[in-house]
Nucleic acid binder design. Sequence first.
RNA 1: GCGAUCGUGGCGAAGGGGUUAACGCACCGGAUUGUGAUUCCGGCAUACGUGGGUUCAAUUCCCAUCGGUCGCCCCA
Length: 426
Amino acid sequence: MNMQAPRGTQDLLPGTTESWQYVERKLNDICHRFNYKEIRTPIFEHTELFQRGVGDTTDIVQREMYTFKDRGDRNLTLRPEGTASVVRAFVQNKLFGLPNQPTKVFYFGPMFRYERPQQGRMRQFVQFGVEALGSADPAIDAEVISLAMSCYQELGLRSLKLVINSLGDTESRENHRKALINHFEPHKDELCSDCQVRLDKNPLRILDCKKDRDHPAMQSAPSILDYLNEDSGQYFNKVRHYLDEMGINYIVDKNLVRGLDYYNHTAFEIMSDAEGFGAITTLSGGGRYNGLVEDLGGPETPGIGFALSVERLLMALEAEGINLPTEDVVDCYIIALGEESVTEAVRLTYKLRKAGLQVDKDYQDKKFKAQFKTADRLNTKYVIVLGENELEKNVVNVKDMHSGEQQEVGINELENYLLNELQGGK
RNA sequence: GCGAUCGUGGCGAAGGGGUUAACGCACCGGAUUGUGAUUCCGGCAUACGUGGGUUCAAUUCCCAUCGGUCGCCCCA
């Protein structure tokens, strides 16, 4: 029997889960301030949802999905991303009918993609994302981008690069697409094999090909920004204007193309500049997806969102040497000697815990000295010694591990004594 | 899907055809009765990823396989 976790998955153990909890709390707090509410959707969906939502030509759908049949012969897939599910839930639950549009939601949970694992890329990984459905106001594009940036900034990250672009509306994209085909067709033989395929299927993707980056035709390729029609151009300008007003720095990269089919208008990515961050630099990405809700059977509804990888967020924190303020201390540790004392210790431990204190005791039948050592290693604030002598007098010895001072306290007063001490100590 | 590299005890790590397979960390016990550090002494372990092959002999050489890590592709 193979007792290892499947390839590309990992256990998060005590010692690191504290960081995850801290980050999750921070992201929750940010969403609260931006007034985004949490949505929780299933971890698997009908395969068709992703085929239609993410796009049949994408790498995700073509080679990365965890797809299986259940006992009822249904075709299901572990979700490779969050947007399709959120949109499905939006349509199915008719959230578009609720007052107070747009619908602003966030999610946090595991996603699955069948890939070769490496630094910053797991088969199961955790994404946090937000979606705003029902508004075509460029101000909400700016809001989503500012929320995304806040997630990193408020955790202390500095080496960030925000890249934005506009893919335009359908008309702009179509005109640009034709221009791209005209431009690259004469050079088709000189392009890499991938790009030769892209030329037919999705010429936009040629622009972010790394192999053909230095090809002269690449430099002179028609920019989407030159093909934006008036509406699209104005939309993009407004998004930029709002970002400027918020004091958010960005770089416009006309070659920024997102990998999923559903994007249009605003597209953006946040990357890390940090030294030693590894080969993968994209921390998060997002964009506008007007038309997706309709594609999935809902009413015409504009939408925009983004998603970030929590693993990569934590990597970025490490790369910048940022330690999250996680606490690892114990309020008190009870040391008992002798059978009767142990019984009393069991009772006391429970009583103090119910009073709100973080309490632990020995369960390894350790010697007195070893118990003290354990208490020390747990960063215990107060050690309570309870032996035959103390039990007889109905007291305990409370030792302040920081100062080293020791005091005799009546067992019945212990709870109040500790609560007092700990309150004063903080 | 392609490529590189690595698999020795709980962890780190040396070795290199025949060894009791070092060493360090961790852990446990002790150094006068019930007080945390350091030091000293002692203890500890089904450890050479798995399966074949070569050999009198393989942890060491060869092949395969599995797994880890990193990179390409692509992405978060």
